[in-house]
Design a protein around this nucleic acid. Structure first.
Length: 140
DNA sequence: GCCAACGTTGGC
DNA sequence: GCCAACGTTGGC
């Protein structure tokens, strides 16, 4: 099981919208590094859902429910998409400010490379953020 | 293969 | 709205 973090601008696609939709196609990624991360995702991997630009916080947890396939919104088959579905909303959203202030999270990929929209997360980072979000989830 | 110019993302 | 940090493009 691998852990990830995916970013979305709430204007474009918000957590609330994902809860309404029940699942969504995570498409539109046009960056090779992010694409490679999408390719590495497997069904049942978990990811944090982060609101960029406005919100600036991790607000929820999603599960990858379909591994990568060609992005239907791309004219070139090199771009990939996955499907995700919401698992739960964090009891307490974890804002970027708190992430930056936590020394245990100083190596996070999302901090090292701010523009990367799909980042890997280590198990210890995953657990630390869950604690900060006062949230527990079942790992089936 | 280098690098300048340009475009995009995302925090502030 | 600005700017830093990239990534991409295209001329040479």
């Amino acid at each position: 099981m691998q852990f990830w973090l995916v970013k979305s601008e709430p204007f474009k696609y918000s957590w609330q919208q994902l809860l309404i939709d029940g699942s969504t196609c995570w498409d539109g990624v046009r960056n090779y590094q992010a694409r490679n991360n999408l390719q590495a995702m497997r069904e049942c991997d978990k990811a944090f859902f982060y609101h960029s630009n406005e919100g600036l916080a991790i607000v929820g947890i999603v599960e990858i429910c379909r591994s990568s396939y060609p992005d239907p919104t791309a004219d070139n088959p090199r771009w990939l998409a996955v499907d995700v579905r919401p698992i739960c909303t964090l009891k307490k959203a974890v804002c970027l400010h708190e992430i930056k202030a936590n020394p245990k999270l100083s190596n996070m990929a999302m901090l090292k490379q701010g523009r990367l929209s799909v980042c890997p997360i280590s198990l210890s980072e995953w657990q630390e953020i869950l604690n900060m979000g006062e949230t527990k989830i079942d790992m089936d």
